[in-house]
Nucleic acid binder design. Structure first.
Lengths: 194, 194
DNA sequence: TTGGTGTGTCAACAGTTGTTGGCCTACGGT
DNA sequence: ACCGTAGGCCAACAACTGTTGACACACCAA
């Protein structure tokens, strides 16, 4: 035995094709949404036959599930000065999806596809809530604080990357940070008014 | 001549059918989004033949255009105490679409349909910007302030009514007001941090 | 009564979609 | 050199889509 006996998926010859399909799928899902992104179009982008998509990913839903794998990659917030949490978060999010269209695909699809909505719930419920809980807020309010942060973050993404409201598109990242950081900061560490 | 000679569309016998189609269309568009809401399903809900939809609204796009007619019905903000703008706005928005599913239809569709996105841009660019401009902020920042307000408002709607993030669904309107009003207030009358 | 127009149904069209099975080819271990 | 198998393409299916035209009935003015 030259390699580990179990759990050693030796590289398949088709890995490049798989990756090409996944890349094309992400692009199409991101720009067109789930329904308008046809398997034929994705296959054409990847320069392969539509039937290959089915063989490697089983179905369109399976393909989307693979393409929409998304990790917020939230940093560890415990060593962030409590007063800079908002700024760190908004900076991270802006950087995170300015270069990755997966979230746009997820955002577009979550509007109409129940499975994608469920996945989005999962991502923000687990990853974001976990990060927010990481620096020790009152557990009773943690999930609501995380939800409020999600509402502003997703609203920003929706208006800037999906609907493309002109003023939201025009603003430079630094200006957005200046406006949104205090919002997130208050959602995380502040108190509601009433 | 018994009535006004021009521009007097006397009530047609089919007005109830037209209204039934429009109501069914709004429901379907709101719950399924543009692509999944089929004309056949809408016609079935309205208990008429699919071809009637075409006759009265020309095409699916025309039907959507009619069904997605939306007015934010923003109150006049000039007589609101400047310190309560955020609270008034968030209260108004919550009340406005808790009972009207048109905005949900628009929100779902704007994710994938360019025409709907354009309409959403128009609504927020004209109606919201106009209202924000109404109480005399610096014209140079008005559109950005309006955009930021839209980002939080739409993010709230998206997480609460579309994706249905549990913490956002659970929160009572009053609690949401307490959290979000200060955000809108600062977007409208505050200064950015940097 | 009569004719025309508005209201509605039925059946079918042409195109697109996800999906399937058969077939050919070329790699790679033995 | 051989042969099993994985990678890839082609053609087709069945279902569903928006859309159209022909046809039937009911209303209403003349």
């Amino acid at each position: 035995m030259t390699v580990a006996p179990t759990d050693a998926p030796r590289p398949r010859r088709s890995d490049v094709t798989r990756a090409a399909i996944l890349g094309a799928a992400r692009e199409r899902f991101a720009s067109d949404g789930y329904e308008r992104a046809t398997i034929r179009a994705i296959a054409a982008d990847a320069r392969i036959d539509p039937s290959m998509v089915m063989r490697y990913y089983g179905s369109k839903e399976g393909l989307f599930a693979a393409a929409a794998e998304f990790d917020l990659r939230l940093p560890d917030l415990t060593d962030v000065p409590p007063g800079q949490l908002g700024e760190v978060l908004i900076r991270h999010f802006l950087a995170r999806w300015e270069g990755d269209e997966t979230l746009a695909a997820l955002l577009r699809t979550a509007s109409t596809n129940p499975g994608a909505a469920e996945r989005m719930r999962g991502i923000f419920a687990s990853q974001l809530s976990a990060a927010v809980a990481g620096f020790g807020t009152d557990p009773a309010t943690t999930s609501r604080r995380a939800g409020l942060v999600a509402s502003q973050i997703l609203g920003l993404a929706f208006t800037r990357y999906i609907v493309r409201l002109p003023p939201m598109v025009e603003m430079a990242p630094e200006e957005l940070v200046g406006w949104v950081a205090p919002t997130l900061q208050r959602y995380l560490t502040g108190l509601p008014e009433n």
